[in-house]
Design a protein around this nucleic acid. Structure first.
Length: 563
RNA sequence: GCCCACGUAGUGUAGUUCGGUCAAGCAUCUCGGGCCUUCACCCCGAUGACCAGGGUUCGAAUCCCUGCGUGGGCACCA
C-alpha cells in the first residue's frame, strides 16, 4: 500500500484477500516459509546491518543560517553556576558552535530585591564574586563566548523606553497594591483604576518614581498587554519597579529597575539575538517579549523551550542557599561538593565533557524530568577509569584478627591498574606475628548482599563462612566478635568466592571522603596513598573514585568523584 | 479558579511536523556470559515501552475527541 497508491482506494476489497493468503502461509512450516521467501528475494533473510551508533543530534533551530546565529547566556550573578544552570549553558553553546554563530554573555544583574527585603536570608541579590565565578565555570565547561554585557550598564535604556511607552499610552503607572491588583483586577480580568487615567498623570507619576517621591513598593509601570488576555499570567505585565537596594556594580544611583521581560524584550532586539533557547518555565516571558517586539514592529527572535529539570532529594540546588552556606562557613567555599556548582564538579574530578554529554542527551524535550546524577556518573567513569589507579580503602572499618597464618611474611602485589600492567604493582605488606595479623574490613561486608532484583548473593557474615580477602588469601570466619576472628584457610582463588576488601591495620592511614550529600565517609586506606599528589583521581576498589584534596602525615582527605 | 505544555522499556531519549521502510532505534540500569592479579573498565548476549478509551483510515506511536496522570505559568524574582 505504501508503494502502490493506486490500490489504496481498494483497501476494503484487498484486506480480506490478504487475510486468506496469510492464513495459508501460516499453515506452512517455518522451513517451507523460509524456502518460499528466499525464492522471492534471496537476500530477504540476510541479517540486518548493524545500525551504526548514531550520534545524538539536537534538532535544528528554525531559520538558522550558518554564521548569522546570535544567542545569549543570561545568568543571574547571585553565585556560581550549578549543574542545573548548566543545561541552559550547554545547549546554547552547542547551537552556537553548530551554526558558527556568536554567543553573548549577558549578566542579568538587575536588582532582584528591594532594600526592605534584603535582610531576608532567602533574598535574591547580586553578589560581586559571581561576576568571576560564572566565567570560571563557563571556561571549565569549554564554553566560548564572544561578547560580555551587563544589564546594570543599560538601565537608562529601559527607563527611557518605558517613558516613551507611557507617553504613547502603551504603559501606565499603577499604584494598586499587589494583592488587590491580583485579586480584584487580574483574576477577573478588569481594568484597575490607574489604567484609565491620563497620560499626563502617568508621566508625572513616572517622574516621581524616578526622583524618589514615591517609595519602594509604592508604584510600578505596567505594560498594556491587555486585561482581557485569556492567560491571566499575561495581563498588564510589570515593566519597571522601584528598589533602593544598593547594586554591587553601580551602587545606589539607580532606583527604577526593569523586570526580566522588559529588559530582554528590548535587548534581544538591540543586541541582535536571533535565537533564544531557554527553559519552559520562562514561556510567559517569551510571550511578553513577542508583545513588545510587535509594539515596536521588530522581527521576532526564534524562541525554543526545553523542559524543566527537577532536582529533589539530595540536591539542594540554589545559588541563594549556596551563598548562605558559603558565607556562614558551613561549606568549604564555592567548590564544596554540596553546592553542585561547576567549581565543585571540577574539584570532585567530574570531567566537563561528562556534564556536557549527559545534558545534551536530554535533547530539547519539553517534559519535566527528575535529574539523575547517574547520567553524569556513567559518562564520567568511562572518562576517568583508565587514569585512576587502584587503591585499597575500607569505609566504616571493623577489626579482624587473622590467626593460623602458615607463613612469616606475606606481601600482596595487586596491579596499580589491571588494564595497564606496565604501571606496576603496589606492594602491600601484611605484618605477621606468630601466625597472626590484624586487618580492617568494611562495615558493608558484614551484611548480607543481594543484587538489585533481591536475589541473595551472600548471606550475613557469620562463623563458618569462607571468604576471599581480595588479592591475598582465603579465610574461614571463626567468631563474629570485636575483633572478628578468622583462620587462614587456603591460598588458591576460586572465581565465585565472596571477595572482601581489607586493609592491613599496621599499614593503614585514616581517610575521609566528602560526598555531595554532605556525608563524610571515614575509613582506612593503605598508607602509601600519602605518596600521591593532591588533585590525583584514584579508584578506591569496591567503593568508587575519589579526588585527593589534602594529604598529610596521618590523614588523607578527598572529595567523592562518583561510583 | 484561570491559562499552557507534556505522557515511548526501571530511567533518559529518537521517532510525532508530513500516518505506511516502527513487530519501534540509542544510551543507561538490571541480569547472564567473556576477558582478567580478584573491583572497575572493555567485549558479547538477554529482559524490557508507544498512559487509557473511543473515532478517522486499507493502515495510527504519529491525526481528532474524551478521560486520567505529570509538569509549568498566573511575583514590585530571574
Amino acid at each position: 500500500m505504501r508503494d502502490r497508491p493506486d490500490l489504496r482506494s481498494q483497501g476494503k476489497i484487498i484486506k480480506p484477500k490478504v487475510q486468506v493468503i496469510v492464513e495459508q502461509i501460516n499453515q506452512l512450516t517455518i522451513e517451507e516459509q523460509t524456502k518460499k521467501v528466499l525464492q522471492l528475494d534471496s537476500h530477504a533473510l540476510d541479517p540486518e546491518e548493524k545500525a551504526q551508533k548514531e550520534e545524538k543530534i539536537l534538532p535544528d533551530l528554525p531559520n538558522a543560517e550558518k554564521g548569522k546565529v546570535i544567542m545569549r547566556l543570561a545568568p543571574y550573578p547571585s553565585g556560581a553556576l550549578h549543574i542545573g544552570n548548566a543545561r541552559m549553558v550547554v545547549l546554547n553553546d552547542e547551537y552556537v558552535k553548530r551554526y558558527q554563530g556568536k554567543l553573548l554573555l549577558v549578566f542579568d544583574d538587575t536588582i532582584g530585591t528591594t532594600l526592605a527585603q534584603m535582610d531576608d536570608p532567602k533574598a535574591k541579590y547580586v553578589i560581586p564574586e559571581a561576576y568571576d565565578l560564572i566565567p570560571e565555570g563557563l571556561e571549565w565547561l569549554g564554553v566560548k563566548y564572544h561578547e560580555v554585557y551587563y544589564k546594570s550598564d543599560r538601565v537608562q535604556i529601559y527607563q527611557e523606553e518605558a517613558e516613551k511607552l507611557i507617553a504613547q499610552g502603551h504603559a501606565y503607572v499603577c499604584t494598586c497594591d499587589p494583592k488587590t491588583f491580583r485579586e480584584e483586577y487580574k483574576r477577573p480580568g478588569k481594568d484597575c483604576p490607574c489604567r484609565g487615567k491620563s497620560i499626563e498623570y502617568h508621566m508625572d507619576m513616572y517622574e516621581k518614581m524616578k526622583d524618589g517621591t514615591i517609595a519602594e513598593q509604592g508604584a510600578v509601570v505596567r505594560l498594556k498587554t491587555g486585561m482581557n488576555q485569556k492567560d491571566p499570567a499575561l495581563r498588564d505585565h510589570i515593566l519597571m519597579r522601584i528598589s533602593d537596594a544598593p547594586h554591587p556594580r553601580i551602587g545606589s544611583k539607580v532606583r527604577l529597575w526593569p523586570v526580566l521581560e522588559w529588559s530582554w524584550g528590548l535587548d534581544d532586539h538591540l543586541l541582535g539575538v536571533t535565537h533564544i533557547v531557554r527553559g519552559i518555565d520562562l514561556r510567559k516571558e517569551g510571550e511578553i517579549e513577542k508583545f513588545i517586539w510587535d509594539l515596536y514592529g521588530w522581527p521576532h527572535a526564534e524562541i525554543q523551550l526545553y523542559g524543566r529539570l527537577k532536582f529533589s532529594g539530595e540536591f539542594k540546588l540554589s545559588k541563594t542557599l549556596a551563598r548562605q552556606n558559603v558565607y556562614s562557613g558551613e561549606y568549604e567555599g564555592w567548590s564544596d561538593p554540596r553546592t553542585w556548582s561547576l567549581q565543585s564538579l571540577a574539584a570532585r574530578g567530574i570531567q566537563p565533557s561528562a556534564v556536557r554529554e549527559a545534558l545534551l542527551d536530554l535533547g530539547m524535550s519539553n517534559r519535566g524530568i527528575e535529574f539523575d546524577k547517574k547520567w553524569v556518573y556513567a559518562k564520567n567513569t568511562k572518562l576517568i577509569d583508565e587514569h585512576a589507579n587502584r587503591y585499597w580503602f575500607v569505609e566504616n572499618p571493623h577489626s579482624v584478627l587473622i590467626e593460623k597464618i602458615p607463613f612469616d611474611k606475606f606481601t600482596a602485589e595487586p596491579l596499580l591498574h589491571p588494564n595497564f600492567p606496565e604501571r606496576g604493582t603496589r606492594k602491600i605488606e601484611l605484618p605477621i606475628k606468630e601466625g597472626k595479623a590484624r586487618v580492617y574490613i568494611a562495615e558493608s561486608d558484614l551484611h548480607e548482599y543481594r543484587n538489585k532484583r533481591g536475589k541473595l548473593l551472600y548471606p550475613k557474615l557469620d562463623a563458618g563462612q569462607i571468604l576471599r580477602f581480595k588479592d591475598m588469601f582465603n579465610v574461614e570466619v571463626k567468631e563474629m566478635n570485636d575483633p572478628i576472628k578468622v583462620y587462614f584457610h587456603s591460598q588458591e582463588m576460586s572465581h565465585n568466592s565472596r571477595k572482601v576488601q581489607v586493609v592491613p591495620a599496621d599499614e593503614s592511614i585514616f581517610t575521609k571522603v566528602l560526598q555531595p550529600d554532605g556525608i563524610i565517609t571515614t575509613g582506612y586506606a593503605t598508607k602509601y596513598l600519602k605518596d600521591l599528589k593532591v588533585g590525583d583521581i584514584v579508584q578506591f576498589e569496591r567503593y568508587g573514585y575519589v579526588k585527593l584534596k589534602q594529604i598529610s602525615k596521618d590523614e588523607i582527605y578527598g572529595y567523592f568523584t562518583n561510583n
